[in-house]
């Protein structure tokens, strides 16, 4: 019986701790995303591609040339050699999240700050764009 009590209380402590860290982590990912060092998961890259090239969500093609994407615009630079241009993945994410932070006159949509895409969607787009 005492063993059981100890077990339950341990579980409670672990869960609360997990809950607390989960909570306190949330605002962090919103502002300054931690760069994910793990190699790109093809599923995530594919999901990112769908968001980036679709017209309703990212619509990156409206302004950027991407691979063989149909009727790309040219307001922004072509999305090529992204790893060379953004060795730090977090910088790429910050640019997509809010390009006007680095340059107030940037024409780019602040996808994260103005919630055009969710943080999760931006993570996926970053994974895809970084492969280009």
């Amino acid at each position: 019986m005492r063993k059981m009590v100890r077990l339950v209380s341990t579980l409670v402590v672990i869960t609360s701790a997990a809950w607390l860290t989960a909570c306190s982590n949330k605002p962090v990912t919103k502002q300054e995303p931690a760069a994910m060092a793990a190699p790109s998961d093809p599923k995530i890259v594919a999901a990112g591609k769908a968001i980036a090239t679709g017209r309703s969500q990212g619509n990156c093609l409206a302004c950027h040339m991407i691979e063989d994407g149909e009727s790309p615009g040219n307001i922004g630079p072509p999305l090529i050699a992204m790893k060379a241009r953004f060795p730090d993945k977090a910088k790429l994410r910050a640019q997509i999240w809010d390009a006007t932070a680095a340059n107030p006159e940037s024409a780019m949509v602040p996808f994260g700050r103005f919630k055009v895409l969710t943080d999760d969607e931006i993570d996926k787009v970053v994974e895809y764009i970084w492969t280009l």
Partner: peptide, 13 residues
């Protein structure tokens, strides 16, 4: 009960 508490906490969080 333990499982329920854990599940409950998880769902709650």
């Amino acid at each position: 009960a333990a499982v329920a508490i854990v599940l409950g906490l998880m769902a709650g969080s």
